[in-house]
Amino acid sequence: MEIRYATNPTDFKHYTGERIRNDFLIENLFEEGTITMVYSHYDRLIVGGAVPTDKPLELEDKETLKTEYFLERREVGFFNISDNKGKITVNGDTYELGKRDCLYVGKGNEEVLIESVDPSSPAKFYVVSATAHKTYPTQAMKLEEATHRHLGDDSQSNKRDLYQYIHADGIQSCQLMMGMTFLSPNNMWNTMPPHVHDRRMEAYLYFDLDEDEKIMHFMGSPEDTRKIVVSNEQAVLSPPWSIHSGVGTKNYTFIWAMAGENYTFDDMDHVDKNDLK
């Protein structure tokens, strides 16, 4: 598992574009036949991708976590971002996940196996794990069962549909929150005007992009912003002190995941667009 360390916002002002990409962009999450994971020192979040082929993939990394099993002191959320069906077996109970389906697995589950229903057409699972101090039951959820919010409008090119899966009024968890946002056709901006939430970090996975389309992900302090050029199925770590906003060369989909002190989805400090620099 790769380790990413936290950054002081004052030091961040002096980073080159290459350093920013190395610290915050996760480029190669989905490799066939393996689980790829990145451990962030921002709220101890783990971001990963799993593409099972001819054999099940076990969620584990004893060497990094120094625990007997992965979920000894953690919880985890899975999203199937592919058109191909997959299944996850948790302590002997199997859950089949289709496109855009989510599975939450709570603290204390010792064995988690990830498979594709058809190994020749492997599923792609996005994986996010946070530390946990309480156990909540394993639960699956489909897109149509998630809490739905309409946001933005065509006049500002930010019309989008947000679906909350793991949150206070949905799948219960200790601190992990996850959901998915779809940009409508001819709309490219997300989270604009931007905001920060200093009590939680966030990670974004951008997907549903053609190979030659890109996202400009904006981050940094509101008065000193930077950008990262992001391709399809790449993720970005967003520190609590940073804005997080993006614009694409066309519409796209992203999964957001948050962890930290506060469990309130709407706990955020909005930033006036006139204050951005």
Rank of each mutant, 00 (worst) to 15 (best):
H133I: 07
Y39N: 09
T36I: 14
I46Y: 00
T147P: 05
F30K: 09
N84G: 04
S245Y: 04
I46V: 10
L162I: 07
V230C: 01
S155G: 07
S231E: 08
T53K: 10
L276S: 01
Y15F: 02
D61N: 15
L151M: 13
R74Q: 11
Y263P: 04
I88E: 08
M188K: 10
K277A: 06
I114F: 04
G248L: 03
G152L: 13
E213A: 05
K277Q: 08
Y42S: 03
H148P: 00
N22W: 13
G48C: 11
V38N: 05
Y69A: 02
V196Y: 00
D269P: 00
P122H: 06
L113Q: 00
D93L: 12
S242N: 06
A123R: 07
M201P: 03
D83K: 10
K87P: 07
T10Y: 10
A130Q: 01
K55G: 03
P240W: 04
N251V: 01
V38W: 06
H195I: 04
D61Q: 11
A168R: 07
R200S: 09
K273V: 14
I228Y: 07
L205G: 03
N274S: 13
E2M: 14
L59R: 01
T89D: 06
L162R: 13
Y39C: 09
D23F: 09
W256Y: 08
L276F: 08
E96A: 08
F125Q: 05
S245P: 02
D153E: 15
A259C: 13
F254H: 10
Q175F: 02
I243Y: 00
H41D: 12
D266G: 00
F70G: 01
G92H: 12
P194H: 11
L237M: 13
D269I: 12
N232E: 06
L25H: 04
F70Y: 12
V47Q: 01
P194M: 09
L151W: 10
T36R: 12
F218Y: 14
P9F: 06
D118V: 09
H148N: 15
K159C: 14
L183M: 15
I26F: 00
E145K: 14
P119I: 05
S116L: 07
S40R: 02
Y136M: 12
V105I: 11
A132C: 01
F125P: 08
Y126A: 12
S242E: 00
S121F: 12
H217D: 11
V76S: 06
G86W: 07
N262L: 04
Y263M: 11
L59G: 01
E27F: 00
V112L: 03
T147W: 05
S238M: 11
D198G: 08
F218N: 09
Y206A: 07
A6W: 02
L176A: 03
